[in-house]
Design a protein around this nucleic acid. Structure first.
Lengths: 261, 261
DNA sequence: CAGTATCAGGCGAGAATGCGCATAATCCTG
DNA sequence: CAGGATTATGCGCATTCTCGCCTGATACTG
């Protein structure tokens, strides 16, 4: 067992936190073959750097956006609902629409489920929570993409899902994203997720994505596509003029939504 | 065996509060395998933080009009929960388990999601609602089966799902059923569903199914398999002796569950 | 109004924690 | 390259936290 450098161990702990949604101090001490004191120091350091949230007995992901989906669901609900409703209005009768994972798209799915008649649209998704919401949708057929489900992303990813996704050519893709950086690139937290999103984007007739305030000028480690590739960008109304102007230059149609904030 | 961290339990209680609209202290104590005192302390803490409203015997959501939770049909919950919990106890570490569609299996999925550690089990399902619940499951990997989702059954059926299901050999199948007729045959409402169930049954190492009172001595139009093929039959305690005796003759192990009815 | 279920607070055991200190490893500088 | 400075680590100890149990008070039920 090769002993890890301290910063390596910190990275490993953070990675584990992301993949499992939680870490327990005692388990880490055992797995890294070190004392619990060292682990506690690590966790304190990570917490001080904002890379995790310290709790008694271990640690949890710092920002809910990196934790398991359940803990994110209740965050900033009004804004998400408004953005989701705007995305749902892009769905026209007869369309085939792919709903990517993410809480904003979950809000879109709820809005779709509340629509009286979707006019024979076909809705496709690889996210169980979104599929569960869309089962209620009226006047639409629902297709799910199977595969190994990543608990952090809350959707099927990996080879199996990639294969299935590759066979679909949606008219519209509602793309989930974890960040829109200043250069206009959309990014994801996981490589598997990014690869899947890229394939989806390549196969789709049109692409729409929604960015709440917190996602603008942030980036995950893996780039998906350039925002210029999108056709529609849904954002909250009342953004700073500088950012608003920069988004306008990217190319997509900008839809501003009043979130009441 | 890792148990839940305190703050995780608080989150889990709150999540359950959101999805089910209420929580009962005694049930939480049972599901989290802790004392009621601890649960009561948790509920007090949540209430103090404004995250729930404390009531005698349990708690209610803090915000009563919490949006689109309409999808949660709170039907004959106690019996379903008890049957579901009994099914969940059949899942042992390392197993590959297929969860068929149905409200009883959804209850089983919730019970599995509340289990602290499933010990590396692999959970497979074609029902979006069940998959959504299982995303929260700890210590297990989740695989979904994709395909066209039938809104009545609430699961992927048809050729695509059949093809995917055919490639899986679960150790245990939690079979959903819509009726157990007097001759001991399990049945389904749809031919597609029945075909899928038969294939699942043929591929599975063991089969378990739960029947509440309302399902005994009823039958759907399509026969799935004979109940004698099952290994475990979970029923409510307190059935009429005649029926109880007839079930005993079918062959499967009978597990009686106290539903408090 | 009696009986039962639930509740809040206190108590104590055990685990987790933070801190100071000693030691070993590593870095850095002359 | 040598020696001091910095850093990482492990250990002991006092403190804090959690949790199950107990007791008396309070809320539901019939």
């Amino acid at each position: 067992m090769s002993s890890l450098l301290t910063s390596e161990r910190l990275d490993a702990i953070e990675a584990r936190l992301q993949s499992e949604g939680r870490v327990v101090a005692a388990e880490l001490a055992r797995d890294f073959d070190t004392s619990e004191d060292t682990i506690r120091r690590d966790l304190r350091a990570l917490a001080a750097a904002g890379r995790c949230r310290r709790v008694y007995g271990g640690a949890l992901p710092a920002t809910p956006s990196r934790g398991p989906v359940s803990s994110r669901a209740r965050l900033s609900a009004p804004a998400k609902d408004a953005l989701g409703a705007a995305l749902a209005r892009l769905v026209l009768p007869g369309m085939t629409v792919f709903l990517d994972a993410g809480t904003t798209n979950l809000a879109a799915a709820r809005a779709l489920a509340a629509t009286p008649d979707l006019g024979g649209a076909t809705l496709v998704t690889h996210a169980p929570a979104i599929a569960a919401a869309l089962v209620e949708a009226r006047g639409a057929s629902l297709v799910t993409i199977g595969g190994r489900v990543d608990p952090v992303i809350g959707a099927a990813i990996g080879a199996r899902a990639f294969e299935e996704v590759s066979a679909i050519r949606p008219d519209l893709l509602l793309l989930g994203t974890c960040g829109l950086d200043p250069e206009g690139a959309l990014s994801a937290h996981s490589i598997e997720d990014a690869v899947l999103k890229r394939r989806l984007a390549a196969n789709s007739g049109a692409i729409a994505t929604a960015c709440d305030r917190g996602k603008i000028d942030t980036a995950g480690p893996f780039t998906v596509i350039d925002a210029a590739t999108c056709d529609t960008l849904v954002v909250e109304a009342g953004l700073p003029p500088a950012i608003r102007a920069r988004l306008a230059e990217l190319g997509p149609e900008i839809i501003e939504v009043e979130t009441g904030a």
